[in-house]
Design a protein around this nucleic acid. Structure first.
Length: 547
RNA sequence: GGCGGGGUAGCUCAGCUGGUUAGAGCGGCGGAAUCAUAAUCCGUAGGUCGGUGGUUCGAGUCCACUCCUCGCUACCA
């Protein structure tokens, strides 16, 4: 048996200063779909997700609640672990940045960067707004009529503050990073994101403040525990901690690093495409192969926010529609890499049309005919007609198309290709009219049913990464054994064996029916919402994805 | 302000290097069928391709200008 190629894939780690939201779930689902796809395609996949538990914001949020940072962490983190499970994720590990192994990894990465001469102690100075808790550059401030200096963006007063800080010589990595982007044109996908990053880097890089002395919830700097590592050093390091760093001679590390893919939100592209490779280059560790930036999800065109009252809990969505249905919706409806919209109607429409009607009903009508007319034994097909061959050829072509799209993580295109065959199969079934053949030509009826079952088999195998449980049910209905469900079962010449006794057909995707209007139970607020987000002044602190 | 994307049927979007009557899905409408989860199939939708002016035998598809919109423009993550 040939050696499996390794494929290390990660989500960003979530920042648990609140509860998991739909953005966290989306990223987990998408990453899981890719991980499952690659596994089924014969790769040795290692899939890591986790939580980023340090930082000033955790400490602040905790303080507001009268808790310690550690207590807040203990309170919030379990929900993230549960969420990943509830979304059906197949992660091999779940990392917490408060774990001992992660301290060791972060400290070692720091030491290596320091040893390479890229870390130096200096003063961080700038115009600091106490109210915004943020530094501003000189040109981001102005003097008002009373000669008081204000942050231009927020209008809050600023004062000159100097703070001792370690710095990373990011400026020394400008050319190396630009070379990386040139040498690996798919280093960041979608391409627009790489362009943005490249133009940022071309604009010149300043050294990066790498430590803080103003709070203590984090990893102390080796040799100078007054300083806490800048949380991004800590956070990014999770990716190598997860495969055994600092033991970089371990089998695990050698096997899986560099990562094949970091899946992240578009708001943190810079940290992953600029800082992270620079840190790694400095420490003499290989850089990841690819970073994929997904978009944001909007509820009816609006950013989720408490004031709008459209905060949607991923657990509730999964309970309402089913995990697999929810996964399918996000993977099919949202072009991966772009922003997307969702609403209860959109989800219901999509899963009813594609899952209940097109696929579920096709399976039900064909398999119940097998049960009725053939005693549940999949009939042996006769000679294939041109029509049979056409639909079979369409099914046989799916795998290559899917692999091609998966090379660039075009998940929605994978599903488009599969569901285009589902539509073909429905047309085939309708025009062949197997129900009319029961009396006139049972042999032909059997062939039509066999062909339909074979197409469903292929569809179900390819749908597994997206809807693991439901796809498994279809394969159960076809009596496909566990070792016949990998993508190698879609290789040329592989066909559903006839003559097997099939279990009694059961619906896999029930139609979603909106609960009767009940103001208390109705999941969807019926208030009219504008289609597009109204233009609003930019908030000083835009809501973000997990760090 | 600078750089980079977008503005195409009611909705979500395809339309590569310019070339016959501008496409898909969903929705809507009409019809067929009745094996099936009232699911499926067939037909239909006449949209100034943001606006104006150009280049060309010919332009959503190239150029200029213009309107609108989104993203990036570093140290909260």
């Amino acid at each position: 048996m040939p050696e499996k190629a390794p494929f290390y894939i990660t989500t960003a780690i979530s920042y648990p200063n609140g509860v998991p939201h739909i953005g966290h779930a989306y990223e987990a689902i998408a990453t899981d779909a890719i991980a499952r796809f690659m596994r089924l395609d014969g790769y040795d996949v290692y899939f890591l997700t986790g939580t980023d538990e340090h930082g000033q914001k955790m400490q602040q949020t905790a303080a507001k609640l009268g808790l310690t940072a550690r207590q807040l962490r203990d309170q919030n983190v379990p929900a993230f672990e549960k969420m990943v499970q509830a979304m059906g994720c197949s992660n091999d590990d779940f990392i917490h940045t408060t774990e001992e192994r992660h301290y060791r990894a972060s400290e070692e990465l720091w030491r290596r960067m320091e040893k390479n001469g890229d870390i130096y102690l200096d003063k961080y100075a700038g115009w600091y707004s106490v109210r915004d808790e943020a530094y501003y550059a000189e040109d981001e401030t102005h003097l008002n009529e009373h000669k008081v200096r204000l942050a231009s963006k927020t209008g809050t007063p600023v004062e000159w503050v100097e703070e001792e800080s370690y710095f990373f010589k990011l400026s020394a990595y400008q050319d190396k990073l630009l070379k990386l982007y040139a040498d690996v044109p798919d280093f960041v996908l979608p391409k627009e994101r790489l362009n943005e990053v490249a133009s940022f880097v071309k604009g010149g890089l300043k050294d990066l403040s790498l430590s803080r002395t103003t709070f203590d919830w984090g990893i102390p700097v080796p040799g100078n525990p007054k300083h806490i590592m800048y949380v991004w050093v800590d956070a990014l390091t999770n990716y190598i901690t997860g495969v055994g760093f600092p033991d970089d001679s371990s089998e695990q590390f050698k096997r899986y690093w560099p990562a094949a893919l970091h899946v992240i939100g578009k708001d943190i592209v810079r940290f992953h495409a600029v800082y992270w490779p620079a840190f790694l280059m400095s420490a003499g560790v290989a850089v990841p192969k690819r970073i994929f930036s997904h978009g944001f999800l909007f509820n009816r065109g609006e950013k989720m926010s408490k004031s709008v009252g459209n905060v949607v809990d991923p657990f509730t969505l999964a309970e309402t529609f089913g995990v697999d249905q929810l996964r399918y919706f996000f993977m099919r409806e949202v072009p991966f890499g772009q922003d997307g919209n969702y609403s209860y109607e959109a989800i219901a429409n999509r899963i009813n049309a594609d899952l209940a009607n097109d696929l579920g009903n096709l399976a039900q009508r064909s398999l119940s005919m097998v049960a009725k007319a053939f005693g549940g034994v999949l009939p042996e097909p006769g000679a294939f007609t041109a029509e049979d061959q056409t639909i079979l050829a369409a099914a046989d072509a799916m795998m290559d198309v899917a692999r091609e799209h998966m090379k660039t993580q075009q998940l929605h295109h994978v599903l488009n290709a599969v569901w285009s065959v589902v539509a073909d199969a429905n047309r085939y079934f309708a025009s062949e009219e197997p129900w009319a053949k029961a009396k006139t030509d049972p042999q032909r009826q059997g062939t039509i049913l066999y062909v339909t079952a074979e197409v469903i088999r292929q569809v179900a195998i390819l749908a597994q990464p997206f809807m693991p449980t439901s796809s498994g049910k279809f394969l159960d209905l076809l009596a496909v054994s566990a070792d016949e469900r990998g993508f190698e079962a879609l290789a040329a010449g592989k066909r559903l064996p006839h003559g097997r006794q099939l279990p009694a057909p059961q619906g896999v995707f029930p139609r979603y029916v909106e609960p009767e209007a009940d103001p208390n139970a109705a999941p969807e607020p019926k208030a009219e919402k504008p289609k597009k987000q109204k233009k609003q002044p930019k908030e000083p602190k835009p809501p973000t994805e997990p760090a």
